[in-house]
Amino acid sequence: MKIIIKIIMLSGLLFASAHAENTPTTVGEAPAKSPAQAQELDRDSVCTNCHDENENKPILAIYQTAHGNKADTRTPSCQSCHGESEKHLSSKSEAPDVIFGSKKGAFAPNDAKEQNTTCLTCHDNDQKRTHWQGSAHQAADVACTSCHVSHAAHDKVRDKKTQPGVCFTCHNDQRAQVRKFSHHPIAEGKVACADCHNPHGSAGPKLLAKNTVTETCYTCHAEKRGPYLWEHQPVTEDCTNCHTPHGSNITPLLKSRAPFLCQECHDGPHRSINPVAGDAAGIQGGITSPTLPSENFTGRACMNCHSLVHGSNHPAGALLQR
C-alpha cells in the first residue's frame, strides 16, 4: 500500500515537474515588477481579463511584438490606442472608444481618420511618414489597419513574402500582372511592393520610394545608370517609356516588342520606315514568299544589331550597336 501511495505521489510530482519545464517561467514566477511596468500591466489586465486566450482573434499575440515590449517606456497599453472605453467596461454592448479595422464585426470600426490619428500619435514625425498627409492612401481614406495587423505575432505586410498579398487586396490589376510571363519575382517573395514604393506617402510619382522612376530602378539596376557616352534619350527620362514593371506578356517586362516598339519613336532611318507582318514570324509563320525573312524584323529585330538600347560607352557606338 505504501509503495502504491509513493508511486502515485511520484507520478504526480513527475507530471507536475514535466509540465513546469514547458511552462514559461515568467508568469507567476517573475521577479517583482517596477512600479511603472506593474501599472501598465494592471491597465492591460482591465482588458485582458475578458479578452483572453479564448478570443478568436489573437489579441494576446501583441505581446510578442514591439507594441507589447513593456520594458520600452514608449510601449502603449490597450487604452493608449483603444481609449479608456469606460462605457464598454460597464457594458459589453457598448463599443470601445476606438475600434480599428475596415470590416464590421461586433461593432463598426471608427472612420479611417480617427483610427489613423491614434496611430499617428506615436508614428507621426517619422521620416517614413513625412509625406503621409495629402498622400494617395491618406486621401483615399485608407486606415493603417487596412494593411497592418498589430495584434498578431506576424504582421503580413511587414514580411516580404506575404506583403504583396496585402497590397493586392485593393490593387487587383497588379495581382494579375505579377503572374504574367515576364515579371519581377514578386509572387516568389524576393521583391516586395515596398522595395519600390512607400505606401505611407512619398515625393516620387505613384508613391515611389525614390524621387523619380529612374532613381528607383537604379537602386537594383545600377548598370543602367551611366551616364553613357551615347545616351538613348527615353532611357534617361523614364524607364516606363518602354517597360512595365509589374508584369508583361513580352519579355523583358516590355510594353511592346521590337521592331514595333522601336517604330513608336523611329520612322527612318534604316528599317524603321518599313511595315512589318509575316517578316517578324519567319518562315514557320506560313510565309511562302521567295523573299526570306529579314534580320531587321525577325527574332530580336532591330536589337539584333542595335542591342545596347540603354546606352553605349564605345567610341564607335553612336548607333548603339557597340
Binding site: T23, V27, E53, L60, A61
Partner: peptide, 11 residues
C-alpha cells in the same frame, strides 16, 4: 495560463 502564455511569448 499556459495557453495565454503561449500567445504572449515567442514561438
Amino acid at each position: 495560463e499556459d495557453e495565454a502564455d503561449a500567445l504572449k511569448h515567442f514561438i
